[in-house]
Nucleic acid binder design. Structure first.
Length: 568
RNA sequence: GCCCCUGUAGCUCAGAGGAUAGAGUAGCGGAUUCCUAAUCCGUUGGUCGCAGGUUCGAGUCCUGCCAGGGGCACCA
């Protein structure tokens, strides 16, 4: 989306300085305070070209700028040249665009005809859906929504951890301690207990490690008993995962776990061999990466069983053949960054020119307040479902307290409680580690998910009182001339650009941050001015602003994967 | 030992190489005859981890160091 005001400034400055429009545009910035101006041109860089002090350039340039519909004042301020745009035009341009496009405001079409594959969530079968799986799930989902808003076809892939030696360990554990046949009525908690116990046992008795490996070998060879027990684990896990995905309202275009690639690995191994990349080392079959200062990628264990790297390579090839993606994003925590460098290096060695389209979108790890990390192996895990339920429970109490007659209160408690959890995760930049703290995640005041939803609901309430939630007509935008209203409009105008930035940086928090800013200025406006009043024209104009705020908030919330209840 | 991520207010975090480093939270003090107080306003609170360097200008870029987290061959 273009900004006509900046275009005009760029054009005029470019003419006066004989610099290219692109160069000028790169210099334009926003002053730190609104009273300084709407846009600014710092003249430091120009002082080199003209061999003159910046403040002199600002003054001289000032005299050459022509006023018009898009610029109504220019003021030199030391080394800066500050531009003021006619507020009525700024307000009119922005609000009519939002009123006209509605939910499509901020969307783009740059991605039309292009596909982006996002690999996210990927919980492990036979383990509970822990709080540590939340990050990949909500970041991946938000990125999917953001890319979709830009016109891309997005394929969300759930690459479930449904193959590997953890099943062998479970089978082993069941054979030691289980009673009778393993059947689908076993709970995920029970499976977790078995998994923790067998891991402890293996630490004390390394001989069991070999037994577990033998079981995995049997599983890969299609051993009937092993496959049957594996299937039970898968079924039990799916029940668990579906419940959590339902709560989060997140689905996938493709659920293809590691087991899906079982029959595709031989082809991958053939191609690796054909390229001369496979070598033997310590009994295992590896791709040597010493030249790049990395440990080798192990393609086959010394007992010829496969590893996750083999499955990921098969998945990469399959995804390229299937989707011809513009980008393939792996939303996986930072601990695996070396692994992804290895994986992508192997793609390069295989001379796949689409290697550059693959990226590891890494995020920081979740830690607990006492300093411990989440470790499923040791049973140190907080269940995501418990976190969601506690947030919902708290929301129920708040609703009972503040708004006991709220229709559909139970659904809203879920929307708000779960939204709070999603927001807490998307709030800070993804590369930071997150410290999990019950007090903090259940605090709904200040910069939180409920704050966004509350603001949205509050404005819906205003609109309902006016004339239903509809865009008003025949608006005189010039009446919106208070500084609080202008600040809101400026914030609304930034929405399209921030969606783009979020996509470019794989960073949903760009959207989160803008939403918070929008609520801050919107609530400030709300507090300072009565929307519905005796003055009909002014009311219509303010309702238009409220409608625009509500529209952009709803869009932003939906990008983040949060619900936007109209009452709460 | 090597590599990656992170160090900004008591705590949680924003900060397009630019103007006096900002929010929330916690503390203190205020605002509801009015559309939702899950809100708003005021106030207290800073050697931007440390030291160099590049630049007219560094929280932002580069180098080194320190601290926290993570990773470094048959787990995923």
């Amino acid at each position: 989306m273009v900004n006509p005001f900046v275009d005009e400034i760029v054009l005029q400055v470019s003419k006066a300085t004989e610099m290219s429009c692109g160069d000028v545009r790169a210099l334009i910035e926003t002053p730190p305070k609104p009273e300084m101006g709407d846009y600014a041109l710092p003249c430091f860089a120009l002082s080199k070209i003209f061999r003159k002090a910046p403040h002199l350039i600002a003054e001289e340039l000032c005299a050459q700028i022509a006023m018009g519909d898009l610029i109504d004042e220019v003021r030199p301020a030391g080394p800066y040249l500050n531009f003021f745009v006619p507020k009525a035009n700024l307000v009119g341009e922005t609000l009519s665009a939002i009123l006209h496009h509605g939910a499509d405001y901020g969307r783009g079409d740059q991605g039309v005809g292009k596909t982006i594959v996002i690999d996210f969530s990927h919980p492990n079968i036979a383990k509970p859906f822990g709080i540590h799986h939340l990050r990949s799930t909500v970041i991946g989902n938000a990125l999917r929504n953001i890319y979709r808003a830009l016109g891309y076809e997005v394929v969300g892939v759930n690459h479930l951890g449904d193959w590997g030696s953890q099943f062998a360990k479970l089978i082993l554990a069941w054979n030691y301690w289980g009673e009778g046949e393993l059947t689908a009525d076993i709970t995920i908690q029970k499976l977790l207990e078995l998994y923790v116990r067998i891991n402890e046992e293996i630490e004390d008795n390394p001989k069991l490690e070999q037994e577990a490996r033998d079981w995995f070998r049997r599983l890969e060879d299609g051993d009937e008993e092993a496959v049957r027990m594996w299937q039970v684990c898968v079924d039990v896990s799916f029940k668990e995962f579906d419940r959590v995905y339902d709560m989060l309202d997140i689905g996938f275009e493709s659920i293809a776990g590691e087991s899906f690639y079982q029959n595709k690995m031989p082809g991958t191994l053939d191609r690796l061999r054909a390229k001369g990349l496979l070598t033997e080392s310590e009994g295992a079959t590896i791709v040597d990466l010493e030249k790049w200062d990395m440990p080798p990628l192990i393609a086959l264990r010394s007992d010829d069983a496969t590893l996750y790297g083999t499955r990921d390579l098969a998945a990469l090839e399959y995804r390229w053949e299937t989707y011809r993606f513009e980008k393939l994003l792996y939303v996986v925590d930072v601990a695996q960054s070396l692994y992804f460098r290895q994986l992508f290096q192997v793609l390069e060695l295989m001379e796949y020119d689409w290697r550059e389209k693959c990226a590891h979108v890494q995020f920081g790890r979740l830690r607990f307040k006492d300093g411990s990390g989440a470790s499923t192996r040791r049973g140190n895990v907080v269940f995501l479902e418990d976190v969601l339920n506690r947030a919902i429970e708290l929301t129920r109490k708040i609703i009972a307290d503040k708004n006991p007659d709220l229709p559909n209160g139970e659904q809203i408690a879920r929307d708000v409680g779960i939204g709070a959890i999603i927001f807490a995760d998307l709030d800070s930049k993804r590369t930071r580690d997150i410290v999990f703290d019950w007090d903090e995640i259940l605090n709904f005041n200040g910069e939180t998910g409920p704050y966004l939803q509350y603001t949205h609901a509050r404005y819906c309430s205003v609109l309902r009182r006016y004339d239903g939630i509809l865009p008003p007509r025949d608006v005189d935008f010039a009446l919106l001339n208070e500084p609080e209203a202008i600040e809101v409009v400026k914030c609304l105008a930034r929405f399209p650009g921030q969606i783009q930035k979020a996509a470019d940086e794989y960073e949903p928090s760009v959207v989160t941050t803008l939403m918070i800013e929008l609520c801050t200025v919107a609530n400030r406006f709300y507090n300072a001015h009565q929307v519905i009043s005796e003055q009909a024209d002014l009311t219509t104009a303010r309702v238009a602003l409220v409608y625009a705020i509500k529209t952009v908030l709803a869009s932003g919330l939906s990008l983040l994967g949060m619900k936007a209840p109209e009452q709460m």
